[in-house]
Simulated scan of single mutants.
Amino acid sequence: VSLAILFLVLVLTISYRQIIYEYPEGGGAYVVARTNLGDRPALIAAAALMIDYVLTVAVSVAAGIAALTSAVPSLFIHREALGLVAILFIIVMNLRGVRESGKFFAIPTYFAIGALGILVVVGTVRSVFNSGAPSIPTGPVEAETLTLFLVLRAFAAGCSAVTGMEVISNGVKAFRPPESKNAATTMIWMSTILASLFMGISWMASHYGILAKVDETVVSQLARLTFGTGPIYYAIQIGTMALLV
């Protein structure tokens, strides 16, 4: 499933990179579909995007709050209220405009990439060379029968990692000149970082047998097993929350 999602990231990157050069004024799904296929396919694409954007906020905020409550379990019972506060914060910041909100979210994004990068690099090295490998608690695991629906559900859940990839092609004009070239370069870097972090975390979770829990995320479990519950662990959790919210 992870390899299938990696292939999807590759296809999306190539496609959006072409769109960036073909539509330097900004080319989202609606614009591209209307230009090439007509009004009805464009409206279908627009409706799909509206649903996607709502689900993106819901999934991202829920995952971000889950990262917070994993680090601070006492906040778990307040996760709904925290989610509403996070959504309100996102609304207020985005009302400032694409360029202004982008500048504000840049620092936590860089911090999150660095924190998760450290987790992937250190965790992968330790797992490969078995240096300080964490002990995984064993216990009964409820297994499900492998069915097509289960595979599709796993694929759909994993695809949440690629939400928002179209933003760069939509906002080409927000880049410095030459806009298309800078946007295309950013797309390549974003996809490379996304693929590296996604595959690294997926491989570590598979290697250590990490399973999702109701009260703790997979990333939290990996960070705790790799670094303990020290400052690096909390930095990773804060970075994950900042990236998702």
Score class of each variant (00 low, 15 high):
residue 40 R to C: 11
residue 77 I to A: 15
residue 16 Y to N: 05
residue 96 R to A: 11
residue 135 S to H: 10
residue 123 G to C: 05
residue 165 M to I: 13
residue 202 S to L: 06
residue 49 L to M: 09
residue 92 V to W: 12
residue 230 G to I: 03
residue 163 T to M: 15
residue 80 E to F: 14
residue 212 A to V: 13
residue 173 K to S: 14
residue 17 R to A: 11
residue 4 A to T: 05
residue 53 Y to Q: 11
residue 4 A to V: 10
residue 11 V to K: 07
residue 188 I to C: 06
residue 62 A to F: 07
residue 73 P to T: 05
residue 140 P to L: 07
residue 146 L to T: 13
residue 82 L to E: 04
residue 135 S to R: 12
residue 190 M to V: 15
residue 19 I to V: 13
residue 102 G to S: 05
residue 158 G to W: 05
residue 212 A to C: 09
residue 218 V to Y: 06
residue 57 V to Y: 03
residue 229 T to L: 11
residue 141 V to S: 12
residue 217 T to Q: 10
residue 11 V to R: 09
residue 209 G to V: 13
residue 141 V to E: 13
residue 111 F to A: 07
residue 158 G to K: 01
residue 87 I to K: 01
residue 191 S to E: 10
residue 60 S to M: 15
residue 136 I to W: 06
residue 135 S to M: 10
residue 153 R to P: 09
residue 190 M to T: 15
residue 188 I to L: 14
residue 121 V to K: 01
residue 218 V to N: 04
residue 115 A to H: 02
residue 73 P to Q: 05
residue 168 I to F: 03
residue 238 I to C: 06
residue 204 M to T: 06
residue 117 G to F: 04
residue 172 V to T: 11
residue 236 I to W: 04
residue 44 I to H: 03
residue 208 Y to H: 10
residue 8 L to K: 04
residue 46 A to N: 06
residue 7 F to E: 07
residue 158 G to D: 08
residue 243 L to A: 15
residue 85 V to I: 09
residue 21 Y to T: 08
residue 3 L to D: 13
residue 222 L to M: 01
residue 162 V to S: 04
residue 80 E to N: 13
residue 176 R to H: 13
residue 238 I to P: 02
residue 160 S to I: 11
residue 168 I to D: 03
residue 146 L to G: 07
residue 29 A to I: 06
residue 60 S to R: 10
residue 1 V to R: 12
residue 229 T to V: 13
residue 146 L to H: 13
residue 213 K to N: 15
residue 189 W to A: 15
residue 238 I to K: 06
residue 210 I to K: 00
residue 95 L to K: 00
residue 152 L to K: 05
residue 209 G to C: 12
residue 84 L to K: 03
residue 225 L to D: 02
residue 98 V to D: 09
residue 228 G to A: 09
residue 66 A to H: 12
residue 190 M to N: 13
residue 91 I to K: 01
residue 116 L to W: 05
residue 24 P to L: 05
residue 91 I to Q: 01
residue 43 L to P: 00
residue 105 F to D: 07
residue 34 R to L: 03
residue 208 Y to V: 06
residue 31 V to I: 12
residue 28 G to P: 00
residue 23 Y to E: 06
residue 75 L to V: 04
residue 235 A to H: 04
residue 214 V to E: 15
residue 168 I to A: 08
residue 244 L to R: 01
residue 166 E to P: 02
residue 123 G to D: 00
residue 105 F to V: 08
residue 77 I to D: 15
residue 133 A to H: 08
residue 11 V to G: 07
residue 38 G to R: 03
residue 60 S to H: 14
residue 177 P to E: 14
residue 119 L to S: 01
residue 190 M to G: 12
residue 211 L to D: 11
residue 84 L to G: 04
residue 42 A to D: 00
residue 64 G to L: 03
residue 213 K to D: 15
residue 193 I to S: 06
residue 170 N to R: 08
residue 100 E to S: 07
residue 115 A to E: 02
residue 227 F to V: 08
residue 244 L to I: 01
residue 29 A to H: 02
residue 52 D to Y: 13
residue 191 S to F: 06
residue 226 T to E: 06
residue 131 S to P: 02
residue 107 I to N: 10
residue 28 G to M: 00
residue 76 F to C: 01
residue 146 L to P: 06
residue 188 I to W: 12
residue 191 S to P: 07
residue 233 Y to H: 10
residue 221 Q to N: 03
residue 186 T to W: 03
residue 226 T to R: 00
residue 40 R to S: 14
residue 42 A to E: 00
residue 105 F to C: 00
residue 166 E to V: 00
residue 144 E to V: 10
residue 224 R to D: 13
residue 106 A to Y: 14
